[in-house]
């Protein structure tokens, strides 16, 4: 009798173990599919995934994932704001390598020192909105002293002869499909401001919108530099005072108290 009871209990225990193992496995699979917790320091989505997430929206504005909350408001002038610097930042801007419509080879590496920031204008020969930028980039002063460079897709998608007729005088045109992939460009027209790293990016549909985008990105970059400079200066002053034996609470820091 006892032997039979032990056998039944053992069998029940085995069944329970199997059930628990199945539940744990199912739970692990659910967690895997849901993905890492927000802000949990998970790996960044690959460029392809970002590109898919950044499809241009109706109305002609698109901004980078990660900066949407701050940048979703469309602006007068047909521009979506450039992604806020720091909200989504490439460690370093990828080089642009390609050919020109006249058959020259070009490599633009943004790691080297630069006299001025570069504005990469991702344009195509076929899009209607791009037409005004092909013209304006040749006729108007570049916004805020930046160096404009037009980047089109490569020879697989663009005809060099057509691009030669569109290319504005004095503005380099580089045909580079890899650059569109590297920067996950969602569509044309699309603009990136690069100063060693990507300072801002987004869509503009008018020249005024583009000027505004660039000015905002430069101002944002300055603000970030200024905000970083304050604590740095404070630490330097503290270190200098400490070197002379002046620390927190030192009487010399409160001349008013001494007078009283």
């Amino acid at each position: 009798m006892i032997v039979a009871l032990v056998a039944v209990e053992t069998a029940l225990l085995v069944v329970l173990v199997v059930l628990v193992a199945g539940l744990l496995r199912s739970h692990a699979e659910l967690l895997r599919r849901v993905g890492p917790a927000e802000g949990g320091g998970g790996a960044e989505a690959p460029a392809g995934a970002r590109a898919a997430a950044d499809e241009p929206r109706p109305g002609g504005s698109a901004v980078r994932a990660g900066a949407r909350a701050a940048a979703d408001e469309p602006r007068p002038g047909g521009a979506a704001p450039l992604a806020a610097p720091g909200a989504f930042r490439e460690p370093r801007a990828a080089p642009v390598v390609g050919t020109t419509p006249t058959g020259d080879a070009v490599k633009l590496d943004f790691d080297g020192a630069a006299a001025q920031p570069t504005l990469l204008a991702f344009l195509s020969s076929g899009c209607g909105t791009c037409a005004r930028f092909w013209q304006a980039l040749g006729e108007r002063e570049p916004p805020a002293g930046v160096r404009p460079v037009i980047v089109t897709r490569g020879g697989d998608r663009e005809r060099p002869a057509r691009l030669r007729t569109l290319a504005p005088a004095g503005v380099p045109v580089v045909m580079s499909s890899p650059a569109w992939q590297d920067y996950a460009v969602p569509g044309a027209p699309y603009f990136l401001l690069i100063d060693g790293e990507v300072r801002g990016e987004g869509v503009a549909t008018t020249w005024e919108g583009l000027v505004s985008l660039v000015a905002d990105a430069i101002e944002d970059a300055r603000l970030i530099e200024r905000s970083a400079a304050g604590p740095r200066r404070a630490r330097r002053v503290d270190a200098t005072l400490a070197a002379h034996g002046i620390g927190p609470g030192h009487p010399s820091l409160y001349p008013g108290r001494q007078a009283r």
């Binding site: 080089p95 058959g103 080879a105």
Partner: peptide, 11 residues
């Protein structure tokens, strides 16, 4: 061209 170098070949 190594990293950090820019270049162009033109005619």
């Amino acid at each position: 061209l190594p990293g950090g170098w820019s270049g162009r070949l033109f005619s």
